[in-house]
Amino acid sequence: MQIMQVDSKKNVLMRLKFTKGNEVKYISHLDLMRAFQRAIRRADIPIAYSSGFNPHQEISFGAPLSLGITSDAEYLDIKLREDMKPEAIIEELNDKLPAGIKLRAGTILNERAKSAMGLVTHSRYTVKVNVQGIELNQFREKLDEFMSLAEIKVMKKQPKKDFELKEIDIRPMIVSVGAVEAPDSGGSYFLQCLLLSGSKNNLKPELLVKAFADFSSWELTGVRINREEVYTEYQGQLLDLLQYAEKENQ
């Protein structure tokens, strides 16, 4: 019996890291996906397609980002029909991506690599806020008080239950929060926070900001949130998703 030769070309999995800038901070997860699909077509990247009735490009994202938040560390996994170097993909695709989306780095994944989506456990954010007439030490004191609470109850909308409000305790999802002065003007601070993120436990930074505003009774204005990095917990360590992929490849 003759054995049929299967396509000799092997699919290649790749993880790419990109920034989501101010220009695209109002683009939803689904729309961002479509923007990538079209950029991939424009750049004529040899993307793999799923089989089935309506084949789609084999691409997937890491943890979704809320509307209005910028990010330095979004992750995208893609499957290619041909072998290509991450550097080549980055160069070709960056040329065809809308303003505000820029690929920064990438790595080849092994065949059994876990998806970016499934890996995410933590996100680090920087939140810029403005509080009139509050000094840095006052700000820090208030933050320490806030963090020493045994529980922090907030009302959360539940998208799957008709946006019904539910009270949840977010304290266990806050790993750490610190504050530094923002360089531009008085009364502006950066909140640096490490929060649980991903499919199991996920704390949206805007919820933390709201809880802190309620607790302090301060009017927090000019809120700007940026995601700095996304991590996966690996042997007690936090690795970003590219570091993790390299570990997996070793």
Binding site: N22, E23, V24, S28, G68, P98, G100, R224
Partner: peptide, 20 residues
């Protein structure tokens, strides 16, 4: 408009103007 108004409205993507 961009940073203060748009977060308050439904589908802010309608008003951003930087499409491909």
């Amino acid at each position: 408009i961009y940073d203060e108004l748009l977060p308050r409205v439904e589908k802010p993507g309608r008003y951003i103007g930087t499409e491909w």
